[in-house]
Write a protein that binds this DNA or RNA. Structure first.
Length: 591
RNA sequence: GGCGACGUAGCUCAGCGGUAGAGCAGGGGACUCAUAAGCCCUUGGUCACAAGUUCAAAUCUUGUCGUCGCCA
């Protein structure tokens, strides 16, 4: 039965480049999962985009003396480039800075307001008279009232690390020295207390498939919910859709509108495809399953607050009162990836950057290591030595070498064609049965979002084929019994033809290559491209996936004897062990 | 301080009530199609510690210690 699956992927924030921790935390597992379901013939919609708004972006823009829009566009462009090179095949990777997203976010806000889920409160906030604007806490400096460090930021003291209440700072001043005064400011709050009972019911049952850390955390958070401000005094963002509010410089708080992106991007995708109602299959069909791939720092927003927003909205752009928006089916959040034993830190340049990594290594080698080492249950560690070792010992030795030894043997000894096997022997049939069983075994693990285990199971199946070859020894058979060698090589070719599919969600590039070596035309997956979309007043670039032409199917090979092969070459590169030392040295140099 | 996750072979981890497992690393062997890869055999652990439940505990309970994270 065809399933309907939404793959909702964390939105990278447009004030820093993406590193391998971000990739393995959310983007890569989402892609593996989505590719698997596409191969199974399921209806997959994988969406995300750049999170464009908020104070950190205006801070960076001010520091560089450019408009926030330029900061957002620069990083957005780099995200598109990276995802293309890593083969992260979003159906749509857009941004929050689209007219569509503005409208949808405002409509969600208004629906919550209509349903009585919002309230307003007035608080004191620092106001910079010279510039005529309210200042975010981090723009305010002064003496820390806890440790008396003279240059504490309004939100947090860099000296003692405590979170601060900016209104209590001693001798507060604007960053840059402007004069300050405390003024009243009014903000909207999401009434989470009101939504808590429904949320409790949602989190309370049917969550056995959730990772323990995710569900435990979420239940704990849901038990102590309070109202949360959802507007800010900031002009870089989405205007609050209430009369008079935009004029006083208020916009939606970025945490509130960014998660709405999953919904607005689904709508944008539908419109781009000329089927403006198509998104409803993922958002209103109760049989659809929605998966949110995120890092653990985002758990509260996706497993607690976003469901609360959806519960409060009930339905949007839909008049049937029997329909309600789908809540997350699973939130398979990953833990963090460390680097050489230390926490990754972009600002201290202790990171393996995504674009940099794919300049020097093949995307499948990176994907392999990142999946094999994915922090699914606890923090894991990127070590260059381990990257090299696992690339050489596992990816190259077990899988790449298997494909290569079979292809070259067939190509040389059977006139560049798949040999005609005649009737298979029991041992051939037995091997093919083991390979076929891999589809069920690996598939079940992928379905359960256990990607590490799934990949290692795929590798185990590859070793079965290596073992089979060793027992049959076609290099001996061919000297005495060419027909026997033909059966062996046919069987091995058919096995790697199947393994090509089993590995495809993890290693799409090399599977496509192998597909060609085996003599097939066409491709397993569709094509990714960067497109420009025009709205009435704006244009934006987005990454898209066109599934047309995808022929890959999650099922065992039915390879025919006689099929012409193409000249083979190794699928992966063995890395020199010196690479590890060089990379670690680079890392220290850059600090 | 509260809560949560984790603590199993040198390393990375699986197992989560029924006689300790895998991969890598280390040691030995037969083979040679292949990126000197693959295959076979092998060394190696009182499953953090303590008490309890049970006919039976890495596996359940409690406590202690350690690591990490979230909150205060």
């Amino acid at each position: 039965m065809t399933e309907t699956i939404l793959v909702a992927v964390a939105w990278p924030y447009a004030n820093a480049d993406i590193h391998v921790g971000n990739i393995t935390g959310a983007y890569l597992p989402a892609d593996v999962f989505a590719r698997f379901h596409r191969l199974r013939g399921n209806r997959v919609l994988m969406v995300s985009g750049t999170d464009a708004h908020g104070t950190p972006i205006t801070v960076r823009a001010d520091a560089e003396g450019i408009p926030p829009q330029e900061v957002y566009e620069r990083y957005h462009r780099r995200f598109l480039d990276l995802f293309l090179k890593y083969g992260l095949a979003y159906d749509l990777f857009t941004s929050t800075h689209t007219e569509n997203h503005f409208k949808v976010s405002q409509d969600i806000f208004l629906a919550l307001k209509d349903h009585g889920c919002l309230y307003t409160e007035t608080e004191k906030q620092w106001y910079e008279r010279g510039k005529g604007r309210f200042l975010p806490d981090r723009y305010v400096e002064g003496e820390c009232y806890i440790c008396h460090y003279p240059n504490a930021r309004g939100d947090q003291c860099d000296n003692c690390g405590n979170l601060l209440d900016s209104t209590q700072l001693i001798n507060p001043r604007a960053k840059g020295g402007g004069e300050l005064e405390l003024r009243d400011t009014e903000h909207f709050y999401l009434d989470l207390g009101k939504l808590a009972p429904d949320l409790g019911r949602y989190l309370g049952a049917g969550k056995d498939h959730w990772r323990p850390n995710v569900i435990n955390r979420s239940r704990q958070d849901a038990a102590e919910l309070r109202g949360r401000a959802i507007t800010r005094d900031l002009d870089w963002g989405i205007p609050v859709p209430v009369a008079g509010w935009p004029e006083s410089g208020k916009c939606l708080y970025v945490w509130f509108e960014a998660v709405i992106g999953y919904f607005s991007a689904s709508i944008e995708w539908s419109r781009n495809h000329g089927t403006p109602e198509a998104w409803k299959d993922w958002w209103y069909d109760p049989g659809a399953k929605t998966y949110y791939f995120i890092g653990k720092d985002n758990i509260p927003f996706h497993a607690v607050i976003w469901p609360a927003q959806l519960i409060g909205v009930r339905r949007l752009y839909e008049t049937d009162p029997g329909k309600t928006l789908n809540l997350p089916y699973d939130v398979p959040a990953n833990e963090f990836l460390n680097l050489e034993g230390q926490k990754i830190s972009g600002s201290r340049n202790w990171a393996v950057w995504g674009l940099d990594s794919v300049e020097r290594y093949d995307p499948d080698a990176l994907r392999y290591y990142l999946i094999a080492n994915m922090p699914e249950a606890k923090d894991s560690d990127w070590s260059w030595a381990e990257f090299v070792a696992r690339n050489n010992n596992e990816l190259v030795a077990t899988w790449g070498n298997l494909a290569n030894r079979v292809l070259t043997f067939a190509y040389k000894n059977f006139d560049g064609r798949v040999p005609d096997p005649g009737d298979l022997r029991p041992e051939d049939i037995e091997l093919l049965a083991k390979v076929d069983a891999g589809f069920a075994g690996v598939g079940q693990l992928l379905k359960a979002v256990k990607l590490r285990a799934a990949l290692s199971e795929a590798l185990r199946v590859a070793s079965e084929v290596n073992r089979y070859l060793d027992v049959r020894a076609p290099w001996s058979e061919i000297k005495t019994d060419r027909a026997a060698a033909a059966k062996t090589i046919y069987t091995a070719l058919r096995a790697i033809d199947s393994l090509k599919i089993v590995f495809a969600p993890f290693l799409p590039f090399s599977s496509e290559t192998l597909h060609g070596y085996l003599g097939y035309d066409g491709s397993l997956f569709g094509a990714q491209k960067i497109e420009t979309f025009a709205e009435p007043a704006r244009t934006h670039e987005a990454l898209t996936y066109d599934p047309a032409g995808a022929t890959g199917q999650w099922q065992p090979s039915r390879l025919k004897g006689g099929q012409p092969l193409r000249p083979p070459a190794p699928l992966f590169k063995k890395l020199d062990e010196a690479v590890a030392e060089e990379e670690v040295a680079r890392l220290h140099e850059k600090r």
